[in-house]
């Protein structure tokens, strides 16, 4: 009888990957979990707190307020960027010399670093010297994004639309371009109106890319930090303090590591949950 000799050395080949994942994802995440369950006053001394911080965060009005602001912001930018992106993608030329011009113009905002976008819009919107702020005021609008919540919100949303609609446009454009001519010809033969062409040909063919666009825009906007931080710093007051700005304030401003860690985990779970629900619903639809 021949006994199979077992050689486990192959596992060594996996070690580099394991280390990499451990150091850049697993250990940091576990550290957060660790902080979320304990209280520390420095000197590496910890006291067990159980789920106290989670309860505190979930009950805190401050968290509710910033979560609400966050949901409103994400809802608003999705409601603007998705239809606008589709509309721009549909009106872009599909052949000819203008294609590349349009594509480059569309890609430009995506290439600008986030803090630069924030700084640009900050200067652009300044009521006394900025082009936007000065023009609005001289047209008779009372506009001051550093002092009025409505102005601040408007500017933040506008900035995000300016920065990220291009992403939706490019994805949708790719979807629209992949539709064979025969579909449009068949639609003409069938006497379809242009609305019917959009509803029954273009929109269904864009569905997959739109799913990706919505997911990306949801995740990015839900975690937005740099741009509003540079633009408004979360103000005036707390009116544009979104979740991640609030989180940084708690963690690094107040140095409340326990509640901050608990909040991060809740934050993470919310993003995960919404994405999962959205994706599952979209894909289930697909299978039917």
């Amino acid at each position: 009888m021949v006994r199979k000799s077992t050689n486990q050395k192959a596992w060594l080949l996996v070690v580099p990957v394991l280390l990499l994942v451990a150091f850049n994802a697993f250990i940091p995440l576990m550290t957060v979990v660790n902080y979320s369950l304990q209280e520390t006053f420095g000197d590496n001394v910890f006291f067990w707190e159980g789920v106290t911080w989670f309860e505190a965060v979930l009950r805190s009005e401050r968290f509710h307020a910033s979560l609400l602001r966050q949901l409103m912001f994400t809802g608003m930018i999705l409601a603007i960027e998705i239809p606008l992106g589709i509309a721009v993608a549909l009106s872009m030329p599909r052949k000819g010399p203008w294609v590349s011009v349009c594509l480059v113009l569309m890609a430009l905002p995506l290439l600008i670093p986030w803090n630069v976008v924030g700084a640009m819009w900050n200067i652009f919107a300044l009521p006394d010297i900025g082009l936007l702020g000065y023009s609005l005021n001289s047209m008779g609008f009372d506009y001051n994004f550093t002092q009025q919540p409505v102005s601040a919100w408007m500017t933040t949303v506008l900035m995000d639309v300016w920065h990220w609609t291009s992403l939706v446009v490019l994805l949708c454009y790719a979807g629209v371009c992949s539709i064979p001519d025969a579909y449009y010809q068949a639609a003409r033969i069938d006497g379809a109106s242009s609305w019917a062409v959009f509803r029954y040909i273009q929109l269904p063919k864009m569905k997959r890319v739109l799913t990706i666009a919505i997911l990306l825009r949801f995740m990015d906007s839900f975690m937005i930090y740099t741009e509003p931080f540079v633009l408004t710093g979360g103000g005036p007051g707390n009116t544009t303090t979104f979740l991640s700005i609030d989180l940084v304030k708690i963690a690094l401003g107040q140095f409340d590591l326990g509640p901050a860690a608990a909040m991060s985990l809740i934050y993470f779970l919310i993003v995960l949950l919404i994405c999962w629900v959205f994706y599952t619903v979209m894909m289930r639809n697909e299978e039917q």
């Binding site: 064979p180 025969a182 579909y183 010809q185 068949a186 003409r188 033969i189 006497g191 029954y200 040909i201 269904p204 063919k205």
Partner: peptide, 18 residues
């Protein structure tokens, strides 16, 4: 096209997926 009352079937099937 719409005024001509012509039906046309193409090389690759065209169906409205949804």
């Amino acid at each position: 096209t719409a005024d001509r009352h012509i039906a046309q079937v193409f090389q690759f099937p065209v169906v409205y997926d949804t």
